[in-house]
Design a protein around this nucleic acid. Sequence first.
DNA 1: TTTATATTCACCCATGCGGGTGAATGTACG
DNA 2: CGTACATTCACCCGCATGGGTGAATATAAA
Lengths: 126, 126
Amino acid sequence: MGEYKLDTVLSAVADPTRRAILDRLLVSDARVTEIASAFPISLNSTSKHIKVLERAELVRRDVRGRDHVLSLRAEGLGDAVAWMQRYREFWEERLAALEAFVLEAEPEADIDADAGSDASTDGIAR
Amino acid sequence: MGEYKLDTVLSAVADPTRRAILDRLLVSDARVTEIASAFPISLNSTSKHIKVLERAELVRRDVRGRDHVLSLRAEGLGDAVAWMQRYREFWEERLAALEAFVLEAEPEADIDADAGSDASTDGIAR
DNA sequence: TTTATATTCACCCATGCGGGTGAATGTACG
DNA sequence: CGTACATTCACCCGCATGGGTGAATATAAA
């Protein structure tokens, strides 16, 4: 399947400069030079970053004369989020554990005995 | 600000092998060798990938004798999703357009087809 | 037409990364 | 004890990447 798309999107977004560019475009569309001026790197570097974002289909380019106007096109992030959502229960374990802790501290609450510590030790295929 | 964490998590997850390792751990905990055997790459390479996932705090290691048992620890993905959610309206433009199209084509149908990706994303984005 | 502005192209350089191999370490077991 | 197994460490290699510079291209403006 088209998993390489996820590769492209995620590696594009893994760079802090490129994330900052997206953040900038969240405010409004902008030309290449406008974006470049917001960063300590050269115009050329910025241009390359934008190219990466374009290939990841996270940015759209509208050429108007000599200006290239960039805008957000973040569908790919939706796919990335969709992939991550499958792990949601795991990052929410922390919240569940905290909740369990609070419940335990509260003498009135009932405690689900095997909730926390067993699942991770079992199920190791040998 | 701890943005470098996002760097670490996103670049860790940008690699397809590492995503596959996480997928594997979603099924059950596993030893290093077990994980390695699922991939065409060497045991050493796998070990390095696991190290990357550990540094990104996406994987936990429990040393039991000579076995190292790995388990998921995906809180960091929550942060990544939180960052991406700010772009949600942009990738949902497409869904909105699709929905409008379907509504127009099929006046009688009810459309809550994409339950998987939206319910879980609620509450974070505005 | 000449000049100025916007953007990219073609290189160069250092670093990091994914992959591999072979040796070292640590633990279990006969 | 010695041997087998699980994992990592120390390197090596090729390639992609982020950064830079200077020239080229294209359009706007004078």
